[in-house]
């Protein structure tokens, strides 16, 4: 059974100026994760990075840079895993279309498209699917 230890819900305007606030909150949270046996400083940076990437996708692609929109971030910590969710209220986007993977040397020098690759590399799973009133980008990391 999954016992929820921490659940955080944050709503911010659809503006990139809030990235650093969310980054700081997520880093502080990562340092509190008792069940994570790995390097917590590295994990804190990874969570900061993946949440930043997910938020930028929501702000720019899903919510089309509309400053009057908002994005919602939900961080859930259970005994077994960390769940990060970023909700948008937009038309959504094709997750694959924003990716020009760094795995492929042909794309090594693209200016854009590393976000999804970074999220997939640092988390165990990344999914994007429609929910009522918008979409959610969901990332999970197991504590092993």
């Amino acid at each position: 059974m999954k016992n929820t230890q921490i659940e955080l819900q944050i709503k911010v305007p659809n503006q990139t100026r809030y990235l650093s606030l969310i980054g700081r909150i997520s880093e502080e949270l990562a340092k509190q994760l008792q069940n994570y046996t790995g390097d917590r400083e590295a994990l804190a940076n990874h969570i900061n990075v993946v949440l930043t990437e997910a938020l930028v996708n929501a702000i720019r692609h899903a919510n089309a840079n509309d400053p009057d929109e908002e994005v919602e971030i939900r961080i859930t910590v259970t005994d077994e895993e960390l769940l990060l969710q970023v909700f948008d209220h937009g038309r959504g986007f094709n997750l694959e279309s924003i990716s020009a993977t760094a795995e492929d040397s042909q794309h090594e020098l693209e200016d854009h498209g590393r976000g999804l690759y970074i999220m997939r590399s640092l988390m165990d799973s990344v999914e994007y699917y429609p929910v009522e009133g918008g979409n959610v980008l969901e990332m999970r990391k197991q504590f092993r």
Partner: peptide, 16 residues
């Protein structure tokens, strides 16, 4: 202390 894919992209743009 922190860089994301957009920050990397800005440097790649400068490099190119």
């Amino acid at each position: 202390r922190f860089i994301d894919s957009s920050g990397l992209g800005a440097l790649v743009s400068g490099f190119k």
